[in-house]
């Protein structure tokens, strides 16, 4: 029974990682850049939801919508002002800029909301589920998180596979110049990608804070790095890779904490990443990289 309870916690944490990792992997796949500020967008999402529920007294769902709207706008603004001017710059310059944006967001949050941790009230206000005569308790947040992740992955697969913007994204991902000659605006496509990634980050932020209810300006940074690890683990650029990578990472972390050592759980997570990359450098579901001539 405890195993089952760990499994559900692992899946729940993994779902949060997967939702964040989807943002990382989409941006990487289309703009070919690592947006290290992605984790901090999660934190902004958390604060937005916190303000809406705690200060404005909004219902939980409205607070999620506010977080999504603000984060989407934030994602588009970050891309427009920090990354777009560097479209032709070496990738190292973009990477450093992304780290800069990350610190900017953290410090802006510090300035606005101070370093005092806020205690976040879960947006899921349903009672926990008791199964097997009360032997297994499943928190409602965990269930909502896992279901949200599944809905998001199905919706995203549909958007990317079947819609016009999805086709544009895949075209831009493969060959920007050829895509432009087909009448696809690369800038607009990258903007939409950031918008979708940031909206997902907002959802992840709210779910994360609901499960681990302490909100600080640095709340997003560790989950951000873990989700980045998950994306690399699954094969960066691959949507199913981000999904499976996130789930696996979440479960490894929880099982590591439960059965091996709480202190070492992060070390275990990153060691497994190193081993996977040694054996399969492109990640679990990554495509073979072939340089275009």
């Amino acid at each position: 029974m405890t195993f089952l309870s760990y499994l559900i916690s692992g899946l729940s944490l993994g779902s949060v990682y997967a939702i964040i990792a989807l943002g990382y992997t989409m941006v990487y796949g289309i703009a070919k850049m690592l947006n290290f500020a992605h984790g901090d967008v999660i934190m902004v999402g958390g604060y937005m939801s916190f303000i809406a529920t705690a200060h404005l007294g909004w219902p939980p769902l409205a607070s999620v919508l506010l977080a999504m709207v603000v984060c989407t706008a934030l994602g588009i603004v970050i891309e427009r002002f920090a990354y777009k001017p560097l479209r032709a710059a070496p990738s190292l310059a973009v990477l450093i800029t992304a780290i800069g944006v990350s610190y900017f967001l953290q410090n802006a949050a510090l300035l606005i909301w101070s370093s005092n941790p806020k205690s976040f009230t879960s947006i899921v206000r349903l009672p926990s589920l008791k199964l097997f005569d009360g032997e297994l308790t499943v928190s409602s947040v965990a269930i909502v998180t896992i279901i949200s992740c599944i809905i998001i992955i199905i919706a995203l697969t549909f958007v990317i596979g079947k819609t016009k913007i999805g086709k544009a994204m895949r075209a831009v991902s493969e060959d920007k110049e050829a895509a432009q000659l087909m009448g696809i605006s690369v800038n607009q496509t990258i903007s939409v990608t950031f918008a979708i990634g940031s909206a997902l980050a907002a959802i992840a932020g709210v779910l994360l804070c609901s499960a681990y209810p302490i909100l600080m300006p640095t709340t997003g940074s560790m989950p951000g790095i873990k989700a980045f690890t998950a994306a690399v683990f699954g094969g960066i650029g691959s949507i199913p890779g981000a999904f499976w990578g996130g789930l696996l990472l979440g479960m490894i972390e929880i099982f590591g904490k439960a059965y091996i050592s709480t202190e070492l759980s992060d070390a275990i997570v990153f060691s497994i990443l190193i081993i996977v990359l040694l054996v399969k450098p492109t990640g679990l579901m990554g495509k073979k990289i072939s340089e275009k001539v």
């Binding site: 958007v159 819609t163 016009k164 999805g166 086709k167 075209a171 087909m182 009448g183 696809i184």
Partner: peptide, 16 residues
């Protein structure tokens, strides 16, 4: 269909 991109008219929202 990517070539037809500019002929296909619908918003991302209706796609979703």
């Amino acid at each position: 269909k990517i070539g037809l991109h500019n002929q296909v008219k619908y918003s991302t929202m209706s796609g979703i």
